[in-house]
Design a protein around this nucleic acid. Structure first.
Lengths: 337, 337
DNA sequence: TTGAAAGCGCTAACAT
DNA sequence: ATGTTAGCGCTTTCAA
């Protein structure tokens, strides 16, 4: 259990002052080349690592971001987190993780807990409860205390902060076009996330498009609960008019697919299914689900990059504060060629 | 953007010294009731939150744990993380997350990065590469520098540290018993994780049991790559002798199930499938996969509790350093009643 | 080119 | 019961 070397220790061994050592390690122009070399050699030899607490205290920055997620057992958020984490570690930032579990109170508590200078900023996707209650004073608190905030995916429209989202409404419209071209006329929107902003946007995009096409028809299976969802889906499919299902989330997509198996409906010949979110579940379903790829990891990277820039160019005026990523359709086994 | 109040600010407003204020907030017995009340009131009013960097520096503890995971888009690790995080936030600990991506180098870099006093300890599940290379000096470095280390699930046998695991070998044996009672004789072990300690243990447990039952037969489909796995599985199933598949991980389980659909094999009537890991994928497969539930969230909680105790009872001698959790079989649609 | 000194916010041993 | 003081490890201004 060898002692952690500090600047002081290095300085003593080298017969220098701590300030010289500090500057040398930072490649300050004030210091001679020889000294720098000497210092760095010993630092390396002794495995010197600066004490982050001391640096934070002194520099008033923690190089830490709190990431608040509604859930973590969820491929979308997992992939986003991967992107955030990858980018963060590249920039020598730490990520502390907070799981709100879709609860407003937990989310608020986390924000409060870390607003004391424990982190430099927050990356947040709002919990379901927060979106339902539309209660977001805690986000304002973040901004008011001078910390940075970037929201992604599940954002608050009325809040004036940086946001990274995907083209939910537009993608909905595109899906309708895609299915229409394949000859489908009777579409069904399936969702277990009608409470979420993203779910609503996707619905709106789809509806808008369908309303503009007199020959298209639209049904809905919107239901949170698995059991009820399956019942409604069964009723809809048994009516035998549906040509295609657009599932707004992975759960509804996989449940719809399972229901077609129960009812012996041939997919994609008799019915096409498209599903939001490029999840592992969709990849390993049988047949593989055609999905809307949100490029979640990229989304995570963009999100970190944004907050990073906010922290660096402190006073720069942001022109666009909402960044919209384009989704793409990944055609697989539940849609026809 | 109101200023963050410090002890000094509170002290000035109250005409007290910072040490009195500090003690009052900590409910020290030295301080009078009235003063405590006065201090706490103002602290609350002004929204005082102690500066964690300063406290860390002074107390030599960060109340932060680094959690190093091989991947995050994985229900098992996600559930474990949930457990860790839940327990941690209960004890006012922060969790910084590190994703090794199954890479030895990334894992080692993370450990080095946080071994400077940025965290009080590490919770680690070894990356695949680390297990293959059996290279774990970086774990020893953690221990040597006086930091705490608890491994879970993917552990290093030769390393003398605290470990939380599940009864992988024993559970394998139990599964064989279970299938045997159902009348199955020809079993097949499927796995995409033969490189991992957990995969090997499960294999061993199964083999041991089968070897002790002269009437049982055992085949293997061990293959990392999805394509190759599917090919081998097809060959095995077409031979038409297999009564049951024990899949050692969720991917092999779902792929096996998909192959039975391709080949029109009736599950569970003609073939039973049991699969390790209670994943979302297994829950939403059709039919629902019978799984070995590892109680992953509990595992995460236990893991945090262990490292927490290590940090608190600093000198207490640990009697058992390996904690084994019992798995349970969750009978669902791919096994017969 | 190097060093001395102050201070970030907090705690605790040691006065008073 | 309250206050004084020193110091955790680092950075940075100012002086030498």
């Amino acid at each position: 259990m060898n002692q952690k070397p500090t600047l002081k220790v290095l300085a003593e061994k080298l017969q220098l002052s701590t300030s010289t050592v500090s500057k040398a390690l930072k490649d300050s122009a004030e210091i001679s080349i020889e000294t720098k070399v000497r210092v760095k050699e010993l630092a390396k030899l002794m495995g010197y690592r600066p004490n982050t607490a001391a640096a934070s205290l002194r520099n008033r920055e923690t190089r830490t971001i709190a990431v608040v997620l509604p859930e973590i057992v969820n491929d979308f958020f997992g992939q986003v987190l991967m992107g955030i984490e990858e980018e963060a570690s590249q920039h020598n930032y730490k990520i502390v993780i907070c799981i709100s579990n879709e609860s407003y109170v937990k989310e608020r508590d986390y924000v409060e807990m870390f607003s004391n200078g424990a982190v430099d900023g927050f990356i947040i996707a709002a919990s379901m409860e927060t979106q339902e209650l539309n209660q977001y004073d805690h986000y304002n608190d973040i901004l008011n205390s001078g910390l940075k905030l970037v929201m992604f995916d599940r954002v608050i429209d009325d809040l004036d902060c940086d946001k990274i989202i995907v083209d939910d409404a537009a993608s909905g419209s595109r899906l309708v076009d895609f299915l229409k071209k394949k000859g489908d006329r009777s579409l069904c929107v399936a969702s277990t996330i009608s409470k979420l902003s993203v779910g609503q946007l996707r619905e709106q995009g789809i509806k808008l498009k369908v309303d503009n096409c007199p020959d298209l028809k639209l049904e809905y299976v919107l239901e949170d609960d698995d059991q009820l969802f399956m019942q409604k889906m069964e009723k809809t499919l048994k009516a035998n008019k549906t040509d295609a299902i657009i599932a707004l989330d992975q759960r509804s997509g996989i449940m719809a697919l399972n229901k077609t198996k129960e009812l012996n409906i041939k997919v994609p010949e008799e019915l096409q299914i498209i599903c939001y979110s490029n999840s592992t579940m969709a990849k390993y379903s049988y047949p593989q689900l055609t999905v809307v790829d949100q490029h979640s990891k990229e989304l995570g990277k963009k999100t970190f990059t944004r907050i990073f820039n906010l922290m660096k160019n402190k006073d720069e005026v942001q022109v666009t504060r909402i960044h919209t990523l384009k989704t793409t359709l990944l055609e697989r086994g539940t849609t026809r060629k």
